[in-house]
């Protein structure tokens, strides 16, 4: 059974974006450029926040859209990027309707959550968790 990053409750999100900073820091790139998770307001902060991260599709549209086979579907769902194959066309970002395939503005290559859970330790408000899941499709 593999672990997956789960958004436990977006209503608990305060919009601090510490998860985004954590995700970038994980790659030794402090700042926000390398984050595979995004937090933005739900049309104004008074309405709370939207947390955007790969939801580990069983049959990921991003992988289907990739013309060079650079996104390899993982057992149990989700993708890994074979960076050498990627030509930076952005088709994956277009194909992901939740916007979880983020493009690196310098390389044009996608940044997609690899379910490492590094961000979870930096979410002090219980929005994120790394959980073992059996049926991906049943998860939030």
């Amino acid at each position: 059974m593999r672990k997956r990053l789960v958004i436990v409750d977006p209503e608990r999100c305060v919009g601090c974006q510490c998860c985004m900073f954590a995700c970038s820091r994980r790659l030794n790139k402090p700042g926000l450029a390398q984050s595979s998770i995004a937090v933005r307001s739900n049309g104004g902060m008074e309405r709370g926040f939207v947390v955007i991260v790969c939801r580990v599709c069983q049959d990921p549209p991003c992988a289907r859209a990739c013309p060079t086979g650079a996104l390899v579907v993982q057992k149990g769902g989700g993708v890994r990027l074979m960076e050498d194959k990627c030509i930076g066309c952005g088709a994956c970002a277009e194909a992901c309707i939740v916007g979880a395939a983020f493009l690196d503005s310098e390389t044009n290559k996608p940044m997609i959550c690899v379910q490492c859970g590094f961000c979870v330790d930096f979410c002090p408000h219980g929005v994120l968790a790394l959980k073992e899941v059996i049926d991906n499709d049943a998860q939030g």
Partner: peptide, 8 residues
């Protein structure tokens, strides 16, 4: 409750 950016 809300936070400023980068404030837990």
């Amino acid at each position: 409750r809300l936070a400023c950016s980068h404030c837990p």
